[in-house]
Design a protein around this nucleic acid. Structure first.
Lengths: 255, 255
DNA sequence: ACGTCGATCTCGAAC
DNA sequence: GTTCGAGGTCGACGT
């Protein structure tokens, strides 16, 4: 930690830390310009700039979840201290975009060599839901038999699950982890339309999601599609139980 | 800045800083659990936790643009130091979600009273494009006359611009700031379909964007819609010139 | 490299 | 409150 360094010292500290790919946090008063996919200006104010080990940059204001300005990883730095300020330029190629940071006050600079190999696990993603529903299709409907989830509909994007119901109808399932909105219905509609052209059978459309929005429900009904509520909890439990037997070589089929 | 505080001291520092709504950055070794809209676990590793003045939380690893864990603004904190660790719990209601952070090493704690009133301006957003195109519709097509951009299509969402071309045809323009993809075509298609039912005229569909993706271009052609390239630069210049006269009370009409 | 889609998306606006 | 769409979205995965 360096408290109130001169701009010259700050320049040295930053260059050395960048060289070694250390984590840098600079707190101070600054203004920021961005030019690239868009353009932005940020007037003087107290913020902190984070330069990470992968050469990404984040400018954070004292409040708000999102960085006000940033640069993705892999950018090239130019640190230019002068008598009055510290100027940091971070340039990214492809697409070409430039972030310019001007500090006229530096409160402190924190340089750390952080080692983080810790594993991160997240449950339950939409693909987890898909796994669960393929493992136990009765979560959607009794007697439902998934068909190869390969591409069947070539042109209309890819639906989540294709299946056959107990009456031999073709079924397309659109999975949403989040509250299903109109967009999900439109997606499903496109899949069903394309499928009807290719398959000479009745084609049912089903949205499987924890919740569906009211408007989407109406739209769904107007298209004669169906909604099946699938709690995330159930998917989580199913996946948990599915894994354990495998590890123990129990091959008891889940039901 | 507090270097290597004891867990007890760290607890005091954090509580006081939270009380005063100061910015807090804690660097150390920690593990993190999240439970709410999803669930996640993060194993031990060196990270820094940011607690902002609006009671939001960000856990950042030494690399990567995005926080590995976070909590949106307005959450409630519980700081619990023990002999072996510092446990911070951040709970958000609506939706209920809980973030639990356990530090078994604290490298340092940075507490700052940052004042940031600086204005942030971003150009060119999609609504900027709309403004520009309404100011000078010839950017899309000569003789195009925008119609009230109020809701005309009640049920099919809202198109960006409604207009009449020099032949009296109804025109719907879908604006995209980013490369226009298939989704833009589908959106346009829905608007045009609805419009055709309500308007007893020829309805043209136009996508106005800096670039259009190849696949989207094909889809567009199959629907007999059109694409008009609109460089962001032109919109930016138009808005710049439009503004200046206003400030100076020149009322010379652009174009 | 481009295209597609999910996300604890976040954020804001409109209804 | 709900819904909807934009975002310098980012990131992952597929081609």
């Amino acid at each position: 930690v360096h408290e109130k360094p001169s701009f010259q010292d700050a320049g040295k500290i930053l260059r050395e830390a960048l060289e070694k790919h250390l984590l840098i946090i600079v707190t101070g008063n600054c203004r920021v310009n961005y030019e690239g996919r868009a353009s932005s200006t940020l007037d003087w104010g107290n913020r902190f700039a984070i330069i990470k080990t992968d050469a990404s940059v984040l400018i954070h204001r004292p409040s708000g979840y999102e960085p006000v300005n940033w640069q993705p990883s892999g950018c090239v730095f130019n640190v230019m201290p002068s008598e009055r300020e510290l100027y940091i330029r971070a340039v990214r190629l492809q697409p070409k975009e430039t972030l310019k940071i001007y500090f006229n006050l530096i409160f402190n600079i924190l340089v750390s060599n952080l080692i983080d190999e810790g594993q991160f696990d997240l449950y339950v993603s939409e693909s987890d839901m898909k796994k669960a529903l393929l493992t136990d299709p009765s979560l959607i409907e009794d007697g439902l038999k998934p068909i190869s989830s390969e591409k069947i509909l070539e042109d209309a994007g890819f639906a989540d699950i294709f299946a056959e119901d107990s009456n031999g109808n073709f079924v397309i399932v659109e999975i949403k982890r989040n509250p299903a909105g109109k967009e999900a219905v439109y997606q499903l509609e496109r899949y069903v339309k394309t499928a009807k052209k290719k398959v000479n059978r009745t084609v049912r459309g089903i949205i499987a999601a924890p919740v569906i929005q009211r408007e989407a429900q109406l739209l769904l009904a107007s298209r004669n599609f169906e909604y099946k509520r699938v709690p995330l909890r159930k998917c989580y439990q199913l996946l948990k139980f599915k894994k354990t037997p495998k590890l123990l070589e129990f091959n008891e089929k889940p039901r």
